[in-house]
């Protein structure tokens, strides 16, 4: 297959999609942005074994409740459930996109999430008086090398911006980080992957994560 691979970025009107698209384009991949079920359906027609569409990306920054509300009113939740849960189509969540995978979040009330990875999103509660939000570059500790952190630096630094964090079962944790309190930096379950940090804004270390996701999505590594 020599055709250019493509990822479909889900737009729910929050956050900087352009940076994510730029990063995938830099890796020689196409990126299309969809914000409604019919565009998603027509993109996903090209997702068969011979089609160019290889993965879904759920980026985003902002408030949890608003994001879920937007996804719901756009009618995106059902088709995404079908593709990600039923058909096991590879998905990469970024930042808020990772938190949305949880069952629920405490951000500004109590909101129900997508529930794809069992867990609860809670406010960061750092000891020793650290500032919130957690902004900046921090070192992640890799728990599962495969597939997101392949060829990664042993102590990779990524760019984080968040006030809430995802609490989930240890078997779904791919990486952790520490900000006065330990928290989950990346999760994975079946073909669902997500990072709390921004790989598209973490220079070469971050671009490598996107490359690893693409490799997985293109079936270049064993799925297990």
């Amino acid at each position: 297959m020599s055709q250019t691979p493509r990822v479909v970025i889900v737009d729910y009107k929050m956050g900087n999609l352009q940076s994510v698209a730029n990063a995938f384009r830099f890796l020689g991949c196409e990126a299309s942005i969809v914000d409604n079920p019919s565009d998603l359906a027509s993109e996903m027609k090209n997702s068969g074994p011979n089609g160019p569409v290889k993965g879904l990306v759920l980026p985003g920054v902002g408030a949890f409740g608003m994001a879920m509300q937007n996804l719901r009113s756009q009618g995106m939740i059902e088709p995404l459930n079908e593709w990600v849960l039923d058909r096991k189509f590879p998905l990469l969540g970024i930042c808020l996109g990772m938190q949305l995978l949880a069952d629920r979040s405490d951000e500004l009330g109590n909101h129900e999430g997508l529930g794809w990875i069992p867990g609860h999103v809670k406010k960061l509660d750092p000891k020793n008086d650290l500032r919130i939000p957690h902004v900046g570059w921090n070192t992640a500790t890799i728990v599962k090398q495969d597939p997101l952190f392949q060829k990664s630096d042993p102590k990779p630094c990524y760019y984080f911006v968040h006030s809430f964090h995802f609490e989930c079962a240890p078997e779904n944790v791919a990486a952790t980080c520490d900000y006065g309190t330990p928290f989950v930096a990346a999760v994975q379950k079946d073909s669902i992957f997500a990072t709390q940090f921004h790989p598209e804004k973490s220079q070469t270390h971050g671009l490598r994560i996107l490359r690893n996701f693409l490799n997985f999505a293109e079936g270049k590594v064993g799925r297990g």
Partner: peptide
Amino acid sequence: SRNCFVPLTVGGGISQVGDVKAVIRAGAD
């Protein structure tokens, strides 16, 4: 922003929410 894989902050001439939307759409963080 096309080849800027670190956070990019943009300032100057921003006076309303619409301006923010425009610069973020252009690739600012």
